[in-house]
Write a protein that binds this DNA or RNA. Structure first.
Lengths: 133, 133
DNA sequence: CTCTGTGCAAAGCGTTTGCAAACGA
DNA sequence: TCGTTTGCAAACGCTTTGCACAGAG
C-alpha cells in the first residue's frame, strides 16, 4: 500500500489501479493535460476510457487531491496539490515549471488598494525555457 | 467616427455596428464572458448570432485589440487590451477588478532561478471583494 | 457480498465552419 | 460594385451522463 492509496482512502475513494496510475503519472510528469494523460494511461490500460479519466480527474479535484492550472493560449494542465507556488510556461515547447515565490508583498499591495480579502494568487509567467531560447 | 472605428480600420477590419457594440460593451463593463456579452448584445441586435460574437472575439484577439483572461474555476472573461496589469476576482459575486502592480522583482527572481526568458506575467488573485466580505 | 468504479455508447454543450444574403467602403 | 461580414444551420470536439458489468473492500 503506497502513499497515494492512503490519500485516496482518506477521501473515501477506492484505490483502483486507474486512479493510482493517474496519481503516478501526475507525480512523474509534474504537469499533464487530459490528452497526454490519456495517452500515457493507454500504455498501461489498453481499454481505459476517457470517461474514466474525466470522472477521476473531477473527483480528485473536488477532493483537493489535484489541481487544474489554467494557462494562457493553451489547454489546462493538472498537477498534484502541493504548497502554493507559481508557474512558468514555455511558449515554444509547452514545458511547465514550478517556482516558489513570496507574493506576500504584492498581495498586500493589491489587498490594500482594492479592499479585497485575498486568499489565493495564481501567477503564470510565459516566455522561453532555457532550451528554447 | 469614434475611437473604436479608427482602431478597427487600422487593423483592416470593417467597423460594423456589431463590432462597435462589442468594443463598447467591453469598454463599459470592463470584463465580460461570452454569455454575458451575447445577452448584452441581444438588447441592441435582436437577431445577432453567437457565431458572430465568436468570430469577432477571435478576430479581435488575433489583432491584439482585446484579450482573454483565464480565471480559476470559472469561464474566461474578455477585456480591451491596455497596459499590463493583474486581476482580482471575487469568489462570491464574480466581480473582476484590475490592478497595476510592479512584478519586476518577482519576475527577476523567477527568471534567475529557472533561466526562463520571461516576457509576460499573468496574475489573478482570488478572494472576496469589499461588498462580499 | 455490497457498493463503488469502469468502459462503452449516447447525449450535451460550447465553439467553429460553410454558405447565401446583407452590408460597409 | 466588390470583398467582407452577418446569421443561420450543421458540424465539431471536448466533456458528461446512463447503464450493465467488473472489481475493491
Amino acid at each position: 500500500m503506497n502513499n497515494f492509496t492512503d490519500i485516496l482512502r482518506a477521501h473515501h475513494l477506492k484505490a483502483t489501479p486507474q486512479r493510482l496510475e493517474i496519481a503516478n503519472t501526475l507525480y512523474s510528469h509534474g504537469h499533464v493535460n487530459i490528452e497526454d494523460l490519456y495517452e500515457t494511461m493507454l500504455k498501461k490500460f489498453n481499454s481505459i476510457s476517457l470517461a474514466t479519466i474525466y470522472k477521476n480527474i473531477n473527483l480528485m479535484i473536488e477532493n483537493a487531491f489535484i489541481q487544474e492550472v489554467k494557462i494562457p493560449n493553451t489547454k489546462s494542465v493538472y498537477e498534484l496539490t502541493k504548497e502554493a507556488h507559481s508557474h512558468l510556461v514555455c511558449d515554444n515547447c509547452g514545458h511547465v515549471e514550478d517556482i516558489s515565490l513570496d507574493l506576500s508583498a504584492v498581495s498586500a499591495l493589491a489587498s490594500h488598494s482594492t479592499e479585497f480579502e485575498i486568499n489565493k494568487a495564481d501567477l503564470v509567467f510565459s516566455g522561453l525555457c532555457k532550451k528554447c531560447q
